[in-house]
C-alpha cells in the first residue's frame, strides 16, 4: 500500500513539475530564469512575454492557420470516413472487406515513410505554402484510422434497422444521414476528438510543405522559435502555452470524451 502511494506520488510529481515550470517560466525574464530556474517569478512580469511574443511574431496568424487547417481537416476526414464506413457496413461482403483492408492498411504505414514522394507530389501540384495542400494531405493521412474506428462501430448497429429502412423505400443517402449518422454520434465525436488532437499538433506536413511565415501553423512556428530564441525558455514556453491553450481548455471541459476519443484509435469500436 505504501509503495503504491509512493509510486503514484512520484508519477504525479513527474507530470506536474515540468508543466508548472512551463507556466512559471513564461512569467519570468531570461535573467530570472538563469539566476533561479526553479523559483517563483518575483517581478510583476506575468504577461510581458505574451505581449512581446505577439509583437515579435505573427502569432495571431499562426493561430488562425492552425485553426483553419484543423477545422477543415477534421470535418472532411470525418465526413468522408463516415461515408466509407457506411459503405463497407452496407456492402457487408468480400468487396467491403477488400475496401476495409485497403483503407486501414494505411494505419500501419507511418507518414514518415512516404514523406519524400509526397513532398515531390505536393511540389508538382503547386500546393506548397498552401493551407489547402495541408488539408488535403491531412485528410488522406487520417482517413485510415477514422475508417477503422467508425466501421468498427457501425458494424455493431442492428442490421434490421438498415433493412427496415430499405424496405420503407429510403435510399442509401437517406439511410446514412437520417439513421446511421444520428446513431453513430458517440463514435463520431470520439473520432473527431482523436483527429482534432492529431491535426492541431501535427508538425511533419507543415515542416515539409510550408516555408512562408504567412502559412505556418503553430507547431512549425514553435519549432522556428527554437532557432530564433535558442535557449530563451521564457519566450519558448510562452509560445508553448499559446499553442496548447485550445486543447487544454477543451480537455478540461470534455475530459471524458478526450479519454474515450484518444484511445478509440487504439481499440476497436
Amino acid at each position: 500500500m505504501l509503495f503504491r502511494r509512493f509510486a503514484i506520488f512520484i508519477y504525479a510529481i513527474l507530470i506536474l513539475v515540468p508543466l508548472t515550470m512551463v507556466v512559471l517560466t513564461s512569467m519570468k525574464t531570461l535573467e530570472q530564469t538563469f539566476d533561479n530556474p526553479l523559483g517563483i517569478p518575483t517581478d510583476g512580469l506575468i504577461v510581458e512575454n505574451f505581449i512581446n511574443i505577439f509583437q515579435e511574431q505573427t502569432m495571431a496568424g499562426y493561430f488562425v492557420n492552425s485553426s483553419v487547417v484543423t477545422l477543415f481537416s477534421v470535418s472532411f476526414t470525418l465526413i468522408f470516413a463516415a461515408m466509407i464506413a457506411f459503405g463497407i457496413t452496407r456492402l457487408n461482403d468480400w468487396k467491403g472487406n477488400v475496401l476495409f483492408a485497403l483503407f486501414t492498411i494505411g494505419m500501419m504505414i507511418p507518414p514518415q515513410v512516404n514523406m519524400v514522394p509526397l513532398y515531390s507530389l505536393i511540389l508538382n501540384l503547386g500546393l506548397t505554402n498552401s493551407l489547402l495542400g495541408l488539408v488535403l494531405v491531412n485528410i488522406s493521412s487520417t482517413i485510415p484510422v477514422a475508417v477503422f474506428i467508425l466501421t468498427g462501430f457501425m458494424k455493431t448497429l442492428p442490421k434490421e434497422l438498415l433493412e427496415a429502412s430499405t424496405i420503407d423505400g429510403a435510399g442509401n443517402w437517406r439511410i446514412f444521414t437520417k439513421v446511421v449518422v444520428p446513431l453513430s454520434l458517440p463514435s463520431l465525436s470520439a473520432t473527431a476528438i482523436f483527429l482534432l488532437v492529431m491535426h492541431w499538433n501535427d508538425l511533419l506536413y507543415p515542416l515539409l510543405f510550408i516555408t512562408d511565415n504567412a502559412y505556418k501553423t503553430l507547431p512549425l512556428a514553435l519549432l522556428d522559435f527554437q532557432g530564433q530564441y535558442s535557449t530563451n525558455y521564457p519566450m519558448l514556453f510562452t509560445g508553448v502555452l499559446i499553442a496548447s491553450v485550445p486543447m487544454v481548455i477543451m480537455y478540461i471541459f470534455l475530459q471524458r470524451y478526450f479519454v474515450a476519443g484518444m484511445t478509440s484509435g487504439t481499440v476497436k469500436g
Binding site: P18, N201, L203, L218, L222, V240, S244, M247
Partner: peptide, 14 residues
C-alpha cells in the same frame, strides 16, 4: 493522460 494532448514540439521544449 494529460501530456498526450500536447504537441511533440511542446513536449520537446519542456
Amino acid at each position: 493522460f494529460f501530456p498526450t494532448i500536447l504537441s511533440s514540439v511542446s513536449v520537446a521544449f519542456i
